[in-house]
Amino acid sequence: MVSKSGFRNVSIGSTLLWITVFVVVPYLFVLVFSFFQRDPEQIVAAVFTWQNYKDIFSPVFLVVCWNSLILALGTTVITLLVAYPFAFFLGRIPERIRRILLLLMIIPFWTSSLIRTYALIILFKANGIVNGLLLSLKLVDEPLAILYTQTSVFIGLVYTLLPFMILPIYSSIQKLDLRLIEAARDLGATSGHIFLRIVLPLTLPGIIAGSTMVFLPALGLFYIPDLLGGARSMLIGNFIKNQFLTTGNWPLGSAASVILTLIMCLFLYVYFLSSRKARTSGMGEMA
């Protein structure tokens, strides 16, 4: 018992320490900086001001925010549409093939997503592999402009975040009791009815979880729009990065970070509410 609780204390303690040192403390700095003044000499000057937040709520930043939300929302919808059929298929095939497919899906995770984004550039650039293929198949006459467009940003985000959508949906589909589908068919339901009234509601927790896990990172991932979208797309993530690394305006970057965090907290709260509702309004497992 003693060694067990000792192990528990050590494992929980070390995680807490890690989070404190690398998440909580830096974040407190960000919070504090967001109320400080900019100082060209020392990065920030410890003088209280609301100015950063006033600057943030400028039309420019609101447009950035709006674009980011639209992009994140679009990414979530596309990943959902791609992931749901795949996850459904994954949950219904023989164990052996399923394990291979899951492995194939997870292997790319072992490579840095930054490197994989560079790989996308090689695929999409004017004289890249995709255009080469399209040209040689005579499907297009001149190279398509994919890179540095909104399209390539979507493709990049969807590609990177797809597994985060697939896994939670897959797990909820696996839990789906096939006998319920039989019962619905027995009661006269067509495939369409069964999907809308049985399968979809019962896999809703997976959809909500997956959407959260795609939407929130999509709001903040700055390097994918940076690399694939070029200078055209300015999103919250890029805005923050630019304030810190390019213009050197740490207080403004901090204020933007705080705003982004608040937006995410809002969505997490919505997620919490909706997943709790989805759970209490179903899922006999609780009984």
């Binding site: 006998r179 319920l180 039989e182 019962a183 027995d186 006269g188 067509t190 019962l202 899922m283 006999g284």
Partner: peptide, 21 residues
């Protein structure tokens, strides 16, 4: 004839009640 077109209904061993309804 698919089950949804047959004039029979089943009481399942597991009951198979829809948990979300």
């Amino acid at each position: 004839t698919p089950p949804n077109k047959r004039n029979v209904n089943t009481v399942f061993q597991s009951y198979a009640l829809f948990p979300h309804m």
